[in-house]
Structures are given as structure tokens and as C-alpha cells.
Amino acid sequence: MKKTIIAFICALFLIGCSKDSEVKTGSLEVTLSYYYNAYQGYKPDVDAKVYLFKGYDVKYKDSYSNYATGSLRTESDDKLVFNDFKAVADVNGKAVVGNIPYGKYLLVVSSKGRFVYSKKVIEINSDLKTETKNFGYKDEFDDDGESW
């Protein structure tokens, strides 16, 4: 009888300790291109960088060198923050980041074809999220609000 009670208590303990839900993850696919010239138009932005930061609600200093290297400085205390996820665009201008836990992130992309960057807050809440960024021919070092 004691063995039955102990076995029952152990079974309840093991069931109670099991994970009820796993952390859901998704992927991000970003397609990047840059404006080459009036004759050839946009080209895939090969080797462009894509960075994701968990601190989407933090104010960062605008600096091309930081955005291009995947490290940002906070405005409040000048703390250096490194990316949580990163990817590099392939020959078609596509960069894929996988196994990202659901949530909000700051997405930063840095063009290789032009010296510009762009950023926006995104939410990963499905198996695959896609974004497209076409870097135009506006100000160097900042895309001046060009749309995604």
C-alpha cells in the first residue's frame, strides 16, 4: 500500500513538473535591395546585414557605424548593446533569421550596396514573417524615412 501511494505521489510530481507549453519560435525573412542607377534600377543588396534587438522600446543613438556593426548605444547611459540575432543577405538579397522566440524586436538593416541603414519595430508572432526594404538614393548614412 505504501509503495502504491509513493508511486502515485511521484507520478503527480512528475506530471506537475512537465512543461505545459514550449516557447514558440518563428523565422524572419528580409529581402533587401538598393538603387544602383537609372539604367539598372534596384539590385539585390548582397552581404547586407540584418540585426534583431530585444530592446525594441529603448532609445538608441543614431550612428551609422553602430547600426552597420550590429551594436547600438543607449541614449540614457551610453551603454553598448549587441544584437540578439543576425543574418547576412545572400546573392538574391535575402537574409533569414530562424528560431526567434515570439515577441517584439527592433529590426535594423544595414545596406552593403549603399552606406545607409534603416530600422523599425516588428513583432514575431507566426512561423514566418517577411519584410522587404529597398534602399533608395536619398541621404547617405540614413534613409531619411524611406518606407519599407
Rank of each mutant, 00 (worst) to 15 (best):
Y56F: 15
Y56T: 05
Y56N: 11
Y56Q: 06
Y56C: 02
V58C: 07
V58K: 15
V58A: 11
V58M: 13
K59N: 09
Y60M: 00
Y60V: 00
Y60E: 03
Y60K: 04
Y60P: 09
Y60N: 01
K61H: 12
K61N: 09
K61C: 02
D62V: 13
D62N: 13
S63G: 14
S63K: 15
Y64K: 07
Y64H: 10
Y64E: 13
N66C: 14
Y67Q: 12
Y67L: 10
Y67A: 13
A68L: 04
T69H: 14
T69P: 01
S71F: 15
S71E: 15
S71T: 15
L72Q: 07
T74L: 07
T74H: 06
E75K: 15
E75Q: 13
E75S: 11
E75L: 09
E75M: 14
E75V: 15
S76G: 08
S76R: 14
S76M: 09
S76A: 14
S76Y: 09
S76N: 14
D77Y: 00
D77N: 13
D77W: 00
K79G: 01
K79W: 05
K79Q: 13
L80E: 10
L80N: 08
L80W: 03
V81R: 01
V81N: 01
F82E: 10
F82Q: 07
F82S: 09
N83C: 09
N83S: 10
N83R: 11
N83A: 09
D84W: 00
F85L: 00
F85T: 02
K86A: 14
K86D: 12
A87S: 06
V88T: 12
V88N: 04
V88E: 05
A89Y: 05
A89H: 04
A89D: 01
D90Q: 06
D90E: 00
V91N: 14
N92S: 11
N92H: 08
N92D: 10
G93Y: 10
G93D: 07
G93W: 12
G93L: 08
K94G: 05
A95V: 04
A95Y: 05
A95W: 08
V96A: 04
V96I: 15
V96F: 06
V97P: 01
V97M: 10
V97F: 06
V97R: 12
N99G: 03
I100M: 11
I100Q: 08
I100V: 11
Y102V: 07
Y102N: 06
G103A: 05
G103V: 04
G103R: 00
